[in-house]
Design a binder for these strands. Structure first.
Length: 370
DNA sequence: GAGACGTGGGT
DNA sequence: TACCCAAGTCT
């Protein structure tokens, strides 16, 4: 696949690292090569932009300065620290791995890529990043940047959306990576991918690496990388319930698996799950919803539609459209059949809210003011 | 190996 | 609007 001569590889490394030395981004997790710092930043940066991560990283390090502190953190505090960052299993796996390091490894980090991948939440990319940056191992760290950069440099036609393609890129990078400065090499590729060689609006003509960019030299850079398109999010309709009593709002603990798992949220009922005819009107749906609450939870509610447009929220694979309903209950109703509890608004700040939950709350307040 | 898993930014 | 993209991993 790669046809570069040893001389060209050496020139590539030298040009790249010289550029990196002069132009590397000054980021909070680059103050040292502490594996804990590298690790937390890499997890946060998965599918997330640098500017989004910076404040989260800084707060996280103040709250949990060490692997031990993270291992000891309580669930609520951890999720509050991750609130709004998304892909929440990252946070749970982070703590799981911290506990693995403390108990299984007696506080000693595995220092190889293979060893690091044994830890929860650490896959081939993150293992390569930690191994190279923190432990100076000459291994590839293939993220979206590396895929994009090397696909263009070498005009690699493999579909980067396919899992098997990773191996090809790891092989290529294994041949060109600097054995002296593998961590800096990998980070330089990321900085290159985030500056001159972005996905759209790239500026390869100004890039320090343009002489090595075969796609650019051939005028076909717009054809790389090759990547199959994502599927569009599936629309899902919900009723969102803001049920009040003198004890606050009724919250439901979401299931342990699936989207937004384990969060305490305003109850959501999928419209498609209501036992009504497909062409039922809204009145029939609300009636069915009230019946379902009575039968499933032994709760007799009378819902009222809240004014305003439904709340919408788009995830990677689903597009939620939530019609908000309100209801009021006496504080002494029996909640023993309902997987939830009353939470006063004054205590909301002690719970981690997901974005969609926050939108529901904002919309409710706005409508109530009227 | 395809699909699930959040959110914010850009066009 | 409706995409696509951003330092991926797990099942």
């Amino acid at each position: 696949m790669i046809t570069w001569s040893p001389e060209k590889i050496a020139a590539f490394q030298k040009t790249l690292l010289n550029w990196y030395d002069q132009n590397k981004r000054d980021l909070p997790w680059r103050k040292d090569h502490d594996p804990y710092h590298v690790w937390v930043s890499e997890i946060m940066l998965q599918q997330t932009q640098v500017q989004t991560v910076i404040p989260y990283y800084q707060r996280f390090m103040k709250l949990f300065p060490t692997v031990q502190a993270l291992a000891d953190a309580d669930e609520t505090q951890l999720m509050k620290a991750w609130e709004g960052l998304g892909y929440y299993s990252r946070a749970r796996n982070l703590q799981k791995a911290a506990r693995q390091i403390i108990t299984d490894y007696h506080g000693e980090w595995p220092k190889t890529k293979a060893g690091l991948q044994e830890l929860s939440g650490i896959g081939p990319y993150t293992a390569g990043a930690i191994a190279s940056i923190a432990f100076n191992q000459p291994v590839a760290a293939v993220d979206g940047n590396a895929f994009r950069v090397f696909a263009r440099l070498l005009k690699i036609d493999a579909d980067i959306a396919k899992p098997q393609t990773r191996r090809l890129f790891e092989n290529v990078i294994g041949r060109v990576i600097s054995k002296d400065r593998p961590g800096d090499f990998n980070q330089a590729i990321m900085d290159l991918g985030a500056s001159y060689m972005t996905a759209t609006n790239y500026h390869s003509a100004d890039s320090p690496m343009k002489a090595f960019n075969q796609a650019y030299l051939d005028g076909v850079e717009d054809q790389y990388p090759v990547k199959t398109k994502n599927k569009r999010p599936v629309p899902v309709a919900y009723y969102g319930l803001l049920i009040t009593s003198n004890n606050g709002f009724l919250f439901e603990k979401r299931p342990a698996h699936g989207i937004l798992s384990n969060f305490w949220m305003f109850p959501l009922v999928k419209v498609a799950d209501l036992k009504v005819a497909k062409d039922a009107d809204e009145g029939q749906q609300l009636n069915a919803l009230e019946n379902q609450f009575l039968e499933t939870y032994r709760l007799k509610i009378h819902v009222t539609k809240l004014g305003g447009q439904p709340v919408t929220h788009t995830f990677t694979h689903q597009k939620w459209r939530i019609t908000l309903l309100t209801a009021n209950l006496a504080e002494h109703v029996d909640l023993s059949y309902f997987p939830g509890k009353w939470i006063p608004a004054s205590a909301f700040k002690t719970f981690a809210f997901t974005k969609v939950q926050d939108k529901m709350w904002q919309r409710y307040q706005k409508q109530i003011e009227k």
